[in-house]
Design a protein around this nucleic acid. Structure first.
Length: 151
DNA sequence: GCCAACGTTGGC
DNA sequence: GCCAACGTTGGC
């Protein structure tokens, strides 16, 4: 079992949006970055857990936990001309973009802010905290996961 | 709204 | 294959 961190803008899709979905489950679509795509397609498995991170908001930070309930499969929004995630170079025969399904696990009573994460000595190498890190999906080590949960 | 950092595109 | 121009992300 592995751990991850999924970023999303709460304006677009926040943890409360997920909570309100049927079965509190939703597909994590719209990822259009090859590195993140590879993780979605090849590495993220059913039963893995991920922090739900709110980005591009004040303040940014981790707001809860989700669990992977379906491993990587083609993201149909890439084939939908109406979607802002449409990519004409992706075809059903040769899908370029992938997604997973996530289920709500919990929402923290109090968000763990980015600045709190940055202050923690055990988290100094965390991928999401690296300078210029823009990946919307990043791996989290077991040690980092535990350290964050104990905050 | 600014802008640093990074990714992508496309001409050559 | 190089690299300039452009686009995007996301903290501040």
């Amino acid at each position: 079992m592995q751990y991850w961190l999924f970023k999303s803008e709460p304006e677009t899709f926040g943890i409360d949006t997920l909570c309100a979905k049927p079965k509190q489950t939703e597909h994590w679509d719209g990822v259009r970055n090859y590195q993140a795509r590879n993780m979605l397609r090849d590495e993220i498995k059913v039963g893995d857990k991920a922090f739900f991170y709110h980005s591009n908001c004040t303040p940014p930070g981790i707001v809860g936990i989700v669990e992977i309930v379906k491993a990587g499969y083609p993201d149909p929004s890439a084939q939908n001309p109406e979607s802002k995630y449409y990519d004409p170079k992706s075809t059903p025969e040769n899908p370029r973009w992938f997604m997973v399904d996530v289920r709500f696990v919990k929402k923290f009573k109090k968000m763990i802010t980015l600045s709190e994460l940055k202050q923690h000595p055990l988290l100094e190498n965390m991928v999401v905290l690296r300078r210029g890190s823009r990946l919307s999906i990043t791996p989290v080590t077991k040690e980092e996961w535990s350290a964050i949960l104990s905050l």
